[in-house]
Design a protein around this nucleic acid. Structure first.
Lengths: 257, 257
DNA sequence: TCACCATGCTACCTCAAGTAACAGTTACCT
DNA sequence: AGGTAACTGTTACTTGAGGTAGCATGGTGA
């Protein structure tokens, strides 16, 4: 209340901490990769000691970077989501004919699980069972993709002045088609990825075409779509508070951002 | 090698044990229900102490009936599978027009998850993450249903002398449609079950109709199908050995069948 | 009569997840 | 120049949930 002294201005982030930022991120990424390797080697019952050994560190080092086992697994799930979205989103938002669009998107999904089968299997195993559903990356990925698809479908249906109520369940159904057939294919491998992409593209096209025709909308599968609705980026993952509570009296100092 | 003595003939199961068979099964069923209630009350991190308390017994009593926690959870999964199959299989194998058939099957599935949301959520949470995939009831249920659908599709395609390679991926895709949209609906409840069934039935019909038309097959959605292929019962769950290894020196005596 | 199965309990064991505490180095802040 | 923050690594330890040992009694079948 009227202190005559001037507080010194804060000068920005402490450089003693900032110089380690990139290093910390790189370390976290290493541990995520090591986790996937350790799971592939030891099975889903892998312990933190085994993960630490795979990463070439001791257990407390691992706990410097992750709050607990679940936190580590969530990071793995986020990695998988990044990989998947980096491919599927451009495919979903790109131009082209409807048929190309479907095909490209299906192939982006299948290509990802084909390139990272171990990571995918780990995430699908849902070692997140002890977490609320909001932390389930598989469900989140599906919801994100379905939301984009629902927006697109909904916009088209509304633009033609017909019932758009089916957009959301249809979007989820279509995402479930690719997901389920992809799981089957990953375990069975009874056909090439190309063949599966063909079969799925056709089925999806027929499903959508039929549903739209029923509403009086006819679309040529080989003519580019009009820009009825620009796909809006949809963000579903809730921001995670960086603070996890007060500092503990001891133990490994936490390197959380 | 020529022993003159005659071994006494075994006279069948020991009645001291047999008299408890039905009782044991009923007890197991009670513990399965208690598990679902306990998970709903305490969350997915529920402990065996909490499950035992919910069942009104002490922990060692629970271990008299189940080998370990995973065994208990597998039993819960099997219960869910029974419930689902008791409804979906008659729907899939019954007569009727294609449209009715699809609709009836979709409704059987959605009706089950609607009537047993807690049980379904528990199973979907896949607390079986520490088990091989073959013990994953969700994957097994989907595989079973998809196998029946694939057989039906495949038979139709082969009867018309066209490429039947898509039968299996399409079957899995369609099961994934219902599964995925069902999950969405169970959490969102943004429409009635009737509406969802309508939307899904239409989409599935269009998908199948389109795929078959492409192969030169036209089917009337409102005329009964010919009996091209009788649905064969498909058994996927591997028989589980009743012996779990040698008897332990002590501990609660195991009541396994 | 002996064996099997049921009932229940307390006390205990095991081990994987997670923590406390120690020591040293580098680079930034005051 | 001294203090501080962040990094490196380790051993030893704690905790608690899953699972077990062992006790006693009664009813029924072999």
């Amino acid at each position: 209340m009227g202190r005559s002294g001037r507080e010194p201005e804060p000068r920005g982030p402490d450089g003693r901490r900032e110089r380690w930022r990139a290093h910390r991120e790189a370390r976290r990424a290493e541990f995520v990769e090591a986790t996937v390797r350790a799971v592939a080697r030891h099975g889903p019952d892998v312990g933190m000691d085994e993960i630490a050994a795979e990463a070439g560190v001791s257990k407390p080092v691992l706990y410097r970077h992750f709050t607990d086992k679940a936190d580590l697994y969530v990071a793995v799930g986020r990695r998988a989501t990044e990989l998947l979205m980096s491919r599927v989103v451009p495919a979903l938002t790109g131009c082209g004919t409807p048929y190309e669009w479907i095909r490209r998107s299906v192939d982006a999904y299948l290509g990802t699980i084909d390139d990272y089968p171990d990571l995918y299997r780990f995430v699908v195993r849902r070692s997140f069972a002890d977490r609320p559903v909001s932390e389930d990356p598989v469900a989140e990925d599906k919801t994100m993709i379905a939301a984009q698809l629902a927006a697109l479908l909904g916009d088209h249906l509304r633009a033609f002045g017909v019932d758009s109520g089916g957009a959301e369940p249809w979007a989820h159904a279509i995402v479930g088609m690719v997901h389920s057939a992809g799981d089957w294919w990953l375990e069975r491998r009874s056909m090439s990825r190309q063949s599966l992409t063909d079969y799925l593209t056709r089925l999806i096209w027929h499903a959508l075409d039929g549903a739209l025709r029923e509403s009086g909308i006819t679309i040529d599968p080989h003519q580019p779509l009009g820009t009825v609705g620009e796909l809006r980026p949809v963000r579903v993952i809730p921001a995670r508070g960086s603070g996890r509570g007060g500092d503990r009296a001891g133990g490994p100092h936490r390197l959380a951002e």
